[in-house]
Design a binder for these strands. Structure first.
Lengths: 215, 215
DNA sequence: CAAAATTATTAGATTAATATAACATAATTT
DNA sequence: AAATTATGTTATATTAATCTAATAATTTTG
């Protein structure tokens, strides 16, 4: 029915969280939680009130309407399921999972979310499969950049700690960045590559610190 | 390095797509692809040019810089992996998968993306497990709203085609919406529930059309 | 090659989400 | 109860992404 922007959904959830924790929510609390200025919170609260999600009288507490509470509950449940997927099923650490869940909760279609939940359930019911996957996911990729053939592109999986790491990071390279091997000298040393628009010449021992995967 | 907003990333990918398909890209093409007006495209192109992602001279073609091309390739690869997860691993249909992938490509952390890829690989290498999951995911949930106990909340999984369906849709209820059973008459008919702030009284045969899951 | 058509740009507005500065109300304390 | 502190509001501005209207450059065509 009422459309809420992502930001408005975030405000709503923060209000509910605050009410739960503290029995009442004030403008100040919400501004703090959201790391925004008071006027910003005031105007967000006004918009939510216009949409009948909350009630707010000047200088007073913020209260959820039944409608607002119900929407919030649905959002919370979505987020809970997404977190479960990220933490339990994928085994990601809480920090990353929370950040990602926060974005996903706004974005995922009901259909996709439903399938993630099925996957959650499936692995919960089949611990041997879950264990197998966990083992598999912990195996390191073993190909390094020096093994990539001339003309081929690869995706960086990890950059091992080494002198070259900072140089690459400073150029903006990171896991998922695509590197192309342009040329190799005889014996494979040095190696010419391009990434993020830069041309680089790497020694073989430097390239060995860059773990990659070819598609 | 250079930060691109989601919108800017979208423009970049559309430019690359256009260049690939047509060997050159013009403002008009991009405006069409993005379903925006020409001035909007002009200003987006200007921003990307300032960030050294593309080159553009007044009234002329748009060209990717090496840097822009490289960023685009990384983005494309991300999206490809996400799509693979949604379509191959989860078995979602292409339309939904494309929409979701489009949003996820901007949102997912590298760590999460990496785990999704592991899951892709794991299931590709273990077709028997994949087959088992496919079978599992196709099993319908079988609990309906009339079976939920008084005081409990449930998540709507599906609303079967029936007279009640339109009524619920018009209230904004859909899969993932939370319903709470407030009261049941003796013999479980009728049933009082709340959802999205509404109080509803449902006949048992209506409630049987609402497939739910209790958490 | 001049007129017409196509494509691009500039100017000026709008909306959502943010900010700072200035002011107003409420609560606390001496 | 007056002064001080805490909290909230209003006025005004900014930024990114969009729009419409007006204008300009380029290309096509009769």
């Amino acid at each position: 029915m009422t459309y809420l922007s992502e930001t408005q959904e975030d405000y709503l959830l923060d209000i509910l969280e605050q009410v739960k924790a503290n029995s009442v929510a004030r403008i100040k609390d919400i501004a703090q939680k959201r790391h925004v200025s008071l006027p910003t919170a005031v105007s967000a609260i006004k918009t939510l009130a216009e949409k009948n999600i909350i009630k707010h009288e000047k200088y007073s507490y913020i209260q959820l309407t039944d409608y607002g509470l119900s929407i919030a509950q649905t959002l919370i449940e979505r987020k809970r399921q997404i977190l479960k997927f990220l933490v339990n099923t994928l085994g990601l650490n809480e920090d990353i999972a929370l950040k990602d869940a926060h974005k996903l909760e706004h974005d995922l279609s009901d259909e996709t979310l439903n399938m993630l939940m099925k996957l959650n359930e499936f692995l919960a019911l089949n611990p041997h499969i879950k264990a197998e996957f966990d083992k598999f996911s912990k195996m390191e990729a073993k190909m390094t950049l020096n093994e990539v053939k001339v003309g081929e592109s690869a995706r960086i999986v990890k950059i091992l700690d080494s002198p070259i790491k900072n140089k690459l990071l400073s150029m903006g390279a990171k896991p998922q960045t695509i590197v192309k091997v342009e040329k190799k000298a005889p014996l494979g040393d040095p190696i010419e590559v391009t990434l993020l628009g830069y041309h680089l010449t790497l020694r073989k021992d430097e390239a060995q610190n860059i773990v990659v995967e070819v598609q």
